[in-house]
Design a protein around this nucleic acid. Structure first.
Lengths: 336, 336
DNA sequence: CTGAAAGCGCTTACAG
DNA sequence: CTGAAAGCGCTTACAG
């Protein structure tokens, strides 16, 4: 470990005070050109690197932000993280990434980090964190919630309109001629899931289609859950001709289940997903789905948080990210 | 923004000095039981939270580490990140995540972070960073390189034996009866790719199989690159009966290419990948591949770095993570 | 344009 | 077991 020169060393070398050395390096306009170059030369010659921890203590700013997500080893979150990271980097922030696994202990210990001022704010994608959001408010750390928004309107929010998700899907399927449409929903403790259920019921009613309650089955957002839910739907006396799945993973599971029963997608059953993960396009058949612009969601969330940190106020309305339905090969008109 | 109590406030409330308050909270054994409880009560009653930035400045330790990866929105890195994060969290470190996109500007600006002592060390999964590794050494920041290791033996390393990868694959295919085996390699500027090529040639020679140079084609680690490479192989006068692909993505591309030529996998051509990403198991056909324990790689890298930060020395040998071949449905004996 | 001084909020030898 | 003091390495009013 070699000796690390400090600002005071640089100042001595350049023959100025530390105050002037600081200004020359961090606020060049404030000093004369000659001192500016003298200080810079001194800094370069000794390999000076600012100590950001010291600056942070003095300025009461860490320039880092905490991002809390439930899991990373799936197809959904990484692209959001990419958007978050790239925007953070462009804005001069570092991103501390915390994986919670929806685990209370982890959530709490990450909350302590942010409460201990190691980060200037946080972005929460982990909807399971009622308690966390509550505490986040309590300590007044700038916080943005994304997609799964249990904090409701009380917190700055970036999300999509989950009722519109359902509306777009129903519109597409009804447009193809389907009337008997089922919904494989997400986990019941998820706000997003209940919104999509409500949106589904509303859109079906608006289209004049009746929704038997047994046509809504929980698929838990997973491949296997979707497959199991699909089998239950196929076991009904009058199975649906089309299924709106709450995400792509459960939609792919549903397709697999259809195959095991000898049914073809889309000829015998139409299947729609939500998310538009990469696999949706390469799936066999390619999946008709709702596209969520995940990268942009990350970018917008980071922008919102950065603004919040600077100004500490926000226009009390959620940022709604636009979505659209992508028609691929898993939907078709019903058989006669 | 409400007022945040400091240690000095707590000390006043408890009627002790800040020194004693600090000890009571951070080093309880050093104070009398009565003062310990008095200080703790005071801290609780005013909602004291330590300022970690101040502690960091004093202790010259940030308890955070920088992780540099080239990309995150694929199937490979997220599970490694999960291993890194969970181990870091258990060891009391925060993980700053930097995505470089193999972009020199980004790499350099992240290097500045670590050089500015915002992190105690770094883990580099981005093999493109000759210059970065060089500078990392120069400033003597504890650094661990993972998988794509351009720093060679000069830096602490966690990786797999890429020659063994090739050996396992060749052994499997030769065992099935294949003699004319091709290799769809990775990007030519990747050390991992050249090691796998060398390992392939060596293993083939050891098995008494001749390798025409045109049987080694660059697939760039991508789905499309793998498909294009496969088409070139199939256009040969005497196409291979089996192909060792440098990763799963290019293997899946190769399978797709076979289909477009009306060839079945594994009946007409055997295909082997490397990585064992999630999709490998659900692919059609399920992919025979080399399993890399990505989660464990992350854990081991973080352990190595933490040890390095504590003791600043390491046993000069790379940590080689064990691998194994998983036989699935994309390989079979050659046709007669 | 520049410097002396205070201070960000902790921890840790050093004395007692 | 406890306190006074120094100090980690910066930045920023305040004077001049």
């Amino acid at each position: 470990m070699t000796y690390r020169p400090t600002l005071s060393d640089v100042a001595k070398m350049a023959g100025v005070s530390v105050a002037t050395a600081s200004r020359a390096l961090s606020n060049p306009d404030l000093v004369a050109e000659s001192t500016r170059t003298a200080v810079r030369d001194a800094a370069n010659s000794c390999g000076y690197q600012i100590n950001l921890v010291a600056r942070s203590l003095r300025k009461q700013r860490t320039n880092s932000i905490l991002v809390l997500i439930p899991e990373i080893d799936n197809q959904f979150y990484p692209t959001i993280i990419k958007g978050l990271e790239q925007r953070a980097h462009n804005l001069g922030y570092s991103m501390i990434l915390g994986l919670t696994s929806n685990n209370l202990l982890r959530e709490n210990s990450y909350l302590e980090i942010v409460n201990s001022r190691r980060a200037d704010g946080m972005i929460v994608l982990d909807g399971g964190l009622d308690n966390l959001i509550e505490r986040g408010i309590k300590f007044n750390v700038p916080t943005v919630q994304v997609l799964e928004c249990l904090g409701g309107e009380s917190l700055p929010t970036v999300r999509i309109d989950d009722r519109q998700v359902a509306a777009l899907v129903v519109e597409h399927l009804v447009g193809l001629g389907h009337r008997r449409i089922a919904h494989i929903s997400g986990s019941s403790n998820s706000l997003v899931a209940t919104e999509r259920i409500a949106g589904f019921q509303h859109a079906m009613a608006a289209a004049g289609c009746h929704v038997h309650s047994e046509l809504i089955v929980n698929g838990g957002y997973t491949h296997d859950g979707g497959a199991a839910a699909m089998l239950r739907l196929l076991d009904m006396n009058e199975p649906p001709t089309a299924v709106f799945c709450a995400n792509d993973a459960s939609a792919m599971g549903a397709i697999r289940a259809c195959r095991t029963r000898g049914l073809r997608v889309p000829q015998d059953v139409s299947i729609v997903g939500v998310d538009d993960i990469d696999e949706a396009a390469t799936n066999d058949p390619p999946l008709t789905t709702i596209h969520q612009p995940r990268y942009e969601i990350g970018v917008m969330a980071m922008d919102l948080l950065a603004g919040l940190i600077e100004t500490s106020n926000w226009k009390q309305k959620p940022v709604l990210v636009p979505i659209n339905l992508i028609e691929r090969g898993s939907t078709a008109p019903p058989r006669h």
